[in-house]
Simulated assay, not measured.
Amino acid sequence: MSQPTPDNPQPPIAAAVIVDGGKLLLVRRRVKEGSLSWQFPAGEVESSETARAAAVREAFEETGLTVTDVKVLGERVHPATGRTMIYVACDIVSGDAYVKDDEELVELTWTQRGQLTEYVPYPFFEPVQQYVDESLTP
């Protein structure tokens, strides 16, 4: 897992990539991060946790879903934000998604493959895009 470094003192961000019933969960934040509007439930990895644990925690804090981490899909420095991102595929254990953290989120949506470009007009990070392509129904 990435830790803050002198070059990048900010902690990494863990993103929960959640697919259920052939749809992908996206959230829209109150404050845009660069050109980003719709994105995955995500937040900073705390010093006492792994990226996988942070993705699980953030999914619950933001959407009320209890999820389990399945695998790390990949890691990169996000080109729009400059933050180290760690993408974690997660499966739902229980709950129904809703805007739990209404100070941070405006809304959420479950989107199908054919609707993705309405929310995110560019491809995801390659390993994430591959996972999404394999997981979403046409």
Rank of each mutant, 00 (worst) to 15 (best):
L116N: 00
P11W: 07
R57A: 08
R29G: 05
V77K: 12
Y122D: 11
D102G: 05
M85I: 07
S48A: 10
E46K: 10
A97R: 12
D91M: 05
A89D: 03
R113N: 09
E61F: 03
P121S: 07
L24C: 07
H78G: 13
G34E: 04
T117F: 05
D20T: 10
S35L: 08
P127E: 03
Q129T: 08
L26E: 04
V93T: 13
T5N: 09
V27N: 00
A59G: 10
F40R: 00
R29N: 10
S2C: 00
E103P: 03
Q129K: 06
A54K: 00
Y119Q: 03
P138N: 13
A14N: 01
Q3E: 11
E46W: 01
Q10A: 14
P121K: 05
P127C: 09
V88D: 00
E103I: 11
V17E: 04
K23Y: 07
G64Y: 02
R28E: 15
A59Y: 00
A55P: 02
P79R: 15
Q3W: 04
L105V: 13
P9C: 09
A51N: 06
L65G: 04
R57T: 12
T109L: 02
E104T: 15
G82F: 01
R28Y: 03
E75G: 01
V19D: 02
T68R: 15
P123R: 03
T81G: 06
E107T: 15
A42M: 13
F40Q: 02
E103C: 13
H78M: 08
E62C: 05
P9N: 14
G34Q: 06
T109I: 12
L25V: 07
D101A: 15
C90M: 06
V56C: 04
T137Y: 03
R52S: 15
Y87S: 09
A53W: 00
L136G: 08
D91E: 15
W38K: 05
K71Q: 14
N8L: 11
A16Q: 09
A97I: 14
V93Y: 11
I92A: 00
I18F: 03
E107C: 10
T84E: 06
A59E: 03
Y119M: 01
G95F: 02
V56T: 11
V106Y: 09
V93P: 13
E103Y: 12
L25N: 01
V88S: 01
L105Q: 09
E46V: 02
L24A: 08
Y119V: 00
V77Y: 02
D91W: 01
V45M: 01
V27Q: 00
C90R: 01
K32F: 07
V93L: 15
R30S: 12
G95E: 07
T84M: 12
P79T: 08
L65R: 01
D7S: 12
T63W: 03
L73I: 11
D133S: 15
R57W: 04
E33Q: 13
V132T: 14
T63I: 11
S47L: 13
L36V: 12
V77C: 08
E134C: 06
L24F: 07
F60L: 07
D91S: 13
A15G: 14
G43H: 01
P4R: 09
W110I: 11
V132H: 06
